[in-house]
């Protein structure tokens, strides 16, 4: 942990600040973990009774086992988005937390990196806890499934960066409604609950364009140990989204804070 933090350079102090502020808010922190568990029991296990088996890369699997890796990716997304949007916006516009940081040796890239990494940590903790529950329920059949945690980190990084990019462009709290408007359909459509083949031909490229689709596919392939060269594409896609989101965030914050 300490060694990993040292790798971050000065950005680690931004992560430390967020850890410190959450020490008294652990209940709020923990609440973010509950939602995907509801989905697992409600849809994965409950509905799974009716659905029966689903095919993943030609292998028939239980419906709950199909849904679980999708929910690992979604947990990472939700945890990351929450911190990268509401909390980030509050720190930027109201608490002026970043203004206070920027008159210390921390520079703008440190602040952006630290914030994105912190939201990713939050998302990854949810993802890892969810993996543990899924494994306990016997839904994880391959040791490759352990790699869903780093895969979830990638999902977290991509969504954190998109979240901070959006928040730093928003003018008021009302704009956050758009995020919810985009997230809900993406959560349902990104092959979390149904395979891509369910969608009509015209809709498939739309599904495949969402970052969550790539996260879900990657986690699912790892969960069943059916990885292939295609997974490199998913990784590259998520890293690309992260890079673009970070660049936009940096640019917007530069304009807002270093005028």
């Amino acid at each position: 942990m300490t060694a990993a933090m040292a790798l971050l350079g000065p950005a680690r102090h931004v992560v430390e600040r967020n850890l410190m502020s959450y020490r008294r808010l652990w209940l709020i922190f923990a609440s973010g973990f509950v939602e995907p568990v509801f989905y697992l029991f409600g849809l994965g296990i409950g509905l799974g009774e009716l659905v029966g088996e689903v095919e993943v890369n030609g292998i028939p699997v239980e419906y709950a086992a199909f849904v679980a890796p999708g929910l690992i990716a979604s947990s990472a997304m939700n945890g990351a988005i929450f911190d990268a949007t509401f909390n980030f916006y509050f720190k930027l516009k109201y608490a002026k937390t970043f203004d206070a940081m920027l008159v210390t040796p921390l520079a703008l890239p440190d602040v952006v990196k630290g914030e994105i990494i912190w939201s990713t940590v939050r998302g990854s903790i949810y993802a890892a806890s969810f993996l543990a529950i899924s494994a306990a329920l016997g839904l994880m059949t391959s040791w490759w499934a352990l790699l869903t945690v780093p895969a979830a980190m990638l999902v977290g990084l991509a969504f954190s960066a998109v979240g901070t990019a959006l928040s730093s462009s928003f003018r008021s709290w009302h704009d956050f409604d758009y995020i919810q408007l985009a997230l809900q359909p993406m959560f349902l459509a990104s092959t979390t609950f149904f395979p891509l083949s369910v969608f009509p031909d015209w809709a498939q490229p739309l599904v495949q364009a969402t970052p969550l689709y790539h996260g879900v596919s990657l986690c699912r392939n790892l969960a069943f140990g059916t990885i292939s060269i295609n997974d490199v594409g998913h990784v590259i896609y998520l890293l690309g989204v992260m890079a673009i989101g970070m660049a936009i965030t940096q640019r917007r914050l530069g304009r807002l804070l270093l005028g």
Binding site: P10, H13, E16, R17, M20, S21, A95, K96, T97, D99, A100, M101, V103, T104, P105, L106
Partner: peptide, 26 residues
């Protein structure tokens, strides 16, 4: 730097404000 507008960290205690700020300075 003492800015014109107070930008103390409302999510932290008085002491934590100083401790984390010292961390920013390494």
């Amino acid at each position: 730097v003492v800015p014109q507008e107070d930008n103390l960290d409302q999510e932290l205690t008085v002491r934590e404000n100083l401790v984390i700020y010292a961390r920013y300075f390494g």
